[in-house]
Amino acid sequence: MPIFYEQRELVTPGDLIADGDYMAGDSTYKEDDKIYATRVGLVNYEGRRLNVVALKAFYVPNVGDLVIGEVVNVNLGSWNLDIKAPHLATLRASDVLDRSFSPQRDDLPSIFDVEDLMLSKIVACDRTRDPLLTIREPGLGKISGGQVVEITPTKIPRVIGSKGSMVNMLKKETGCQITVCQNGLVLIIGKTIEKERLAIMAIRKIDQEAHTKGLTERVTEMIQKENQGV
């Protein structure tokens, strides 16, 4: 059962990663007991399971994901949100109001209007259905302050780090409140704009250098250096 690539080695679509009794994970597929890569990325083993951590991919919604969406359309009883996925997501008026929606009483644009950014969660989504969102959980709702950075969605795990090591370090070093969303958007709320900028710089660096070793140390170093300068 040979494996043809080392851990964290760069592969391109069509590369034969392994032959034999393995399971095909993310960005890979299996044909005749052979596992091939489907995207440009880094090989990653988890026991018998082979993954490729894609260096470029787009967001595919899943139930339970935390996402930031921009309102792009106000309908009669719902809003459409752009969550950086292939399809627009829907947020129902009855979910936002604490009662059923009444067209005579409720004026949706006065609640949320186009260009508003919403922190929300996906409650339903599959092959035949566009994503449905909810904001009925603590912490969710319209974003009223801070800054949003966009990065490649597959690098979100790297921003979080193993057991949250990276994001905890970022929070500690910059003093910002950081919300990492599965669709590749990161919300940063800091006490000063300088602190927010520092966090954004760090996240951009993680996005660019996600496939390199010793990233957490390098990012810590960068932030501490900048902090001394300020």
Binding site: T12, P13, Y36, R39, K56, F58
Partner: peptide
């Protein structure tokens, strides 16, 4: 296509 992150069987 590969650059867009679309999964491909092969180039």
């Amino acid at each position: 296509l590969a650059d867009a992150g679309i999964p491909l069987r092969d180039l």
